[in-house]
Amino acid sequence: MEQATVKWFNAEKGFGFIERENGDDVFVHFSAIQGDGFKSLDEGQAVTFDVEEGQRGPQAANVQKA
């Protein structure tokens, strides 16, 4: 698992990007966020996640709020 920071997340559209420590951004979809209830992330929030290869490149999976 990697630890990184949420760059931005649009709760209405259900997706955003996580900024990795190496500077690369990773796409995150609300369905990858672990937990119950409304799944959203806040800008600047610390998260841990795995990286999977998606249809359009790397994307976050198993996202957990740190």
Results as ranks from 00 to 15, higher is better:
Met1Cys: 13
Met1Ser: 14
Met1Ile: 11
Met1His: 12
Glu2His: 14
Glu2Val: 11
Glu2Asp: 08
Glu2Ala: 10
Glu2Ile: 14
Glu2Phe: 15
Glu2Met: 13
Gln3Ala: 12
Gln3Lys: 14
Gln3Gly: 08
Gln3Thr: 14
Gln3His: 13
Ala4Lys: 03
Ala4Glu: 03
Ala4Val: 03
Ala4Asp: 01
Ala4Thr: 03
Ala4Asn: 04
Ala4Arg: 04
Ala4Ser: 09
Thr5Lys: 14
Thr5Asp: 04
Thr5Asn: 09
Val6Asp: 00
Val6Cys: 07
Val6Trp: 00
Val6Lys: 01
Val6Glu: 00
Lys7Ala: 03
Lys7Ile: 05
Lys7Leu: 05
Lys7Asn: 03
Lys7Asp: 00
Lys7Cys: 08
Trp8Val: 03
Trp8Glu: 02
Trp8Phe: 07
Trp8Lys: 02
Trp8Thr: 01
Trp8Gln: 01
Trp8Ile: 03
Phe9Arg: 00
Phe9Asp: 00
Phe9Lys: 00
Asn10Lys: 05
Asn10Gln: 05
Asn10Asp: 10
Asn10Val: 04
Asn10Gly: 03
Ala11Glu: 08
Ala11Gly: 08
Ala11Leu: 09
Ala11Asp: 06
Glu12Thr: 13
Glu12His: 13
Glu12Cys: 15
Glu12Met: 13
Glu12Trp: 13
Glu12Gln: 14
Glu12Gly: 10
Lys13Ile: 09
Lys13Thr: 06
Lys13Tyr: 10
Lys13Cys: 10
Gly14Ile: 03
Gly14Gln: 03
Gly14Tyr: 02
Gly14Asp: 00
Gly14Ala: 04
Phe15Glu: 02
Phe15Gly: 00
Phe15Leu: 05
Phe15Trp: 15
Phe15Thr: 02
Gly16Asp: 02
Gly16Met: 04
Gly16Trp: 05
Gly16Pro: 00
Gly16Lys: 00
Gly16Thr: 04
Phe17Tyr: 06
Phe17Arg: 01
Phe17Lys: 03
Phe17Ile: 06
Phe17Trp: 07
Phe17Gly: 00
Ile18Tyr: 01
Ile18Cys: 05
Glu19Trp: 14
Arg20Leu: 08
Arg20Ala: 04
Arg20Asp: 04
Arg20Trp: 08
Arg20Asn: 05
Glu21Pro: 13
Glu21His: 12
Glu21Gln: 13
Glu21Ala: 14
Glu21Leu: 12
Asn22Arg: 09
Asn22Gly: 10
Asn22Pro: 08
Asn22Val: 10
Asn22Ile: 10
Gly23Phe: 06
Gly23Thr: 05
Gly23Asp: 07
Gly23Ile: 04
Asp24Lys: 14
Asp24Ser: 14
Asp24Pro: 15
Asp24Val: 13
Asp24Thr: 14
Asp24Trp: 09
Asp24Asn: 12
Asp24Met: 12
Asp25Gly: 06
Asp25Tyr: 12
Asp25Val: 13
Asp25Glu: 10
Asp25Ala: 10
Asp25Gln: 14
Asp25Leu: 15
Val26Pro: 03
Val26Ala: 01
Val26Arg: 00
Val26Cys: 06
Val26Lys: 02
Val26Gly: 02
Phe27Thr: 01
Phe27Gly: 00
Val28Tyr: 04
Val28Ser: 00
Val28His: 02
Val28Glu: 00
Val28Ile: 08
Val28Trp: 05
His29Gln: 04
His29Met: 06
His29Asn: 03
His29Thr: 02
His29Asp: 01
Phe30Asp: 00
Phe30Glu: 01
Phe30Trp: 15
Phe30Met: 06
Phe30Asn: 02
Phe30Ile: 06
Phe30Tyr: 13
Phe30Arg: 08
Ser31Ile: 05
Ser31Val: 04
Ser31Asn: 06
Ser31Tyr: 06
Ala32Asp: 06
Ala32Thr: 06
Ala32His: 05
Ile33Val: 07
Ile33Phe: 05
Ile33Cys: 07
Ile33Asp: 02
Gln34Arg: 10
Gln34Pro: 05
Gly35Tyr: 08
Gly35His: 08
Gly35Leu: 08
Gly35Gln: 09
Asp36Cys: 15
Asp36Pro: 12
Asp36Arg: 11
Asp36Leu: 12
Asp36Ser: 13
Gly37Arg: 04
Gly37Cys: 10
Gly37Tyr: 07
Gly37Met: 06
Phe38Gly: 05
Phe38Val: 08
Phe38Ala: 07
Phe38Lys: 08
Phe38Gln: 06
Phe38Asn: 07
Lys39Ile: 06
Lys39His: 06
Lys39Val: 07
Lys39Gln: 09
Lys39Phe: 06
Lys39Tyr: 06
Ser40Gln: 10
Ser40Asn: 07
Ser40Leu: 08
Ser40Val: 11
Ser40Met: 10
Leu41Cys: 06
Leu41Ala: 03
Leu41Tyr: 02
Leu41Asp: 01
Asp42Lys: 15
Asp42Ser: 14
Asp42Ala: 14
Asp42Val: 15
Asp42Leu: 14
Asp42Glu: 14
Asp42Tyr: 15
Asp42Gln: 15
Glu43Met: 14
Glu43His: 15
Glu43Thr: 14
Glu43Asn: 13
Gly44Pro: 01
Gly44Arg: 06
Gly44Lys: 06
Gly44Ala: 04
Gly44Tyr: 05
Gln45Gly: 07
Gln45Leu: 07
Ala46Met: 13
Ala46Asp: 08
Ala46Phe: 13
Ala46Glu: 10
Ala46Asn: 09
Val47Trp: 03
Val47Ile: 08
Val47Gln: 01
Val47Phe: 03
Val47Lys: 03
Val47Arg: 03
Val47His: 01
Thr48Gln: 08
Thr48Phe: 13
Thr48Asp: 05
Thr48Pro: 01
Phe49Glu: 01
Phe49Trp: 01
Phe49Pro: 02
Phe49Ala: 02
Phe49Gln: 00
Phe49Val: 03
Phe49Thr: 01
Asp50Phe: 15
Asp50Lys: 13
Asp50His: 14
Asp50Ala: 12
Val51Met: 11
Val51Phe: 09
Val51Ile: 14
Glu52Asp: 06
Glu52Cys: 14
Glu52Arg: 11
Glu52Pro: 01
Glu52Ser: 10
Glu52Phe: 13
Glu53Asn: 12
Glu53Met: 15
Gly54Pro: 03
Gly54Gln: 05
Gly54Leu: 06
Gly54Lys: 07
Gln55Glu: 12
Gln55Val: 13
Gln55Arg: 15
Gln55Pro: 15
Arg56Glu: 06
Arg56Met: 09
Gly57Pro: 04
Gly57Cys: 06
Gly57Ile: 03
Gly57Glu: 03
Gly57Asp: 01
Gly57Thr: 04
Pro58Leu: 12
Pro58Tyr: 10
Pro58Lys: 10
Pro58Gly: 05
Gln59Ile: 09
Gln59Phe: 11
Gln59Arg: 12
Gln59Thr: 07
Gln59Leu: 06
Gln59Ser: 07
Ala60Ser: 04
Ala60Lys: 01
Ala60His: 02
Ala60Trp: 02
Ala61Ser: 10
Ala61Cys: 11
Ala61Arg: 12
Ala61Met: 11
Ala61Pro: 02
Asn62Gly: 04
Asn62Met: 07
Asn62Trp: 08
Asn62Arg: 10
Val63Gly: 01
Val63Asn: 01
Val63Pro: 01
Val63Ser: 02
Val63His: 03
Gln64Ala: 10
Gln64Asp: 05
Gln64Phe: 10
Gln64Arg: 14
Gln64Lys: 12
Lys65Arg: 11
Lys65Asn: 08
Ala66Tyr: 12
Ala66Glu: 09
Ala66Trp: 11
